[in-house]
Amino acid sequence: MMHTDYPVEAGDFTRAGEASADIKRRLRQLGVSTELLRRVAVASYELELNIVIHSVGGQLSLEVDSQCVRLSSSDRGPGIVDVAQAMREGYSTANDEARSMGFGAGMGLPNMRRNADVFTIDSVPGRGTDIQMLFELA
């Protein structure tokens, strides 16, 4: 199994997208299908940006075995009070700075769920949020 971690800083828009660019590069080297690559590209970018915009920092992980691609994130807070609401299209708590840069359309989590084969989110207010996505290779 191939495993790589990417630390992601809160509010660091200048580096946002670097982790997802590296994830795409690795998947190309591994030879996954272009259709899957596109889905992972969209999902990993949203995942990375979510940490940048909403969390106080965290990390992203990529794991690949011969069955599937697993993309996960774990941040150090603040956590989501109402996960069901956060999953709704168009709902966002992004601040003005993020919105002024074109983020905060409220499509991040829905886009992840749409592109992944399996999507799980686990959040504890005050502690942080863990997201896991599975993409089947077959």
């Binding site: 199994m1 191939m2 080297q29 030879g31 011969s66």
Partner: peptide, 20 residues
């Protein structure tokens, strides 16, 4: 597919771990 590390995904994963 010039960037591909191996013909099979399993082989490519082995190579990438080795690379890491």
């Amino acid at each position: 597919n010039a960037m591909r590390l191996d013909e099979s995904i399993a082989g490519a994963i082995d190579r990438m771990e080795h690379m890491n």
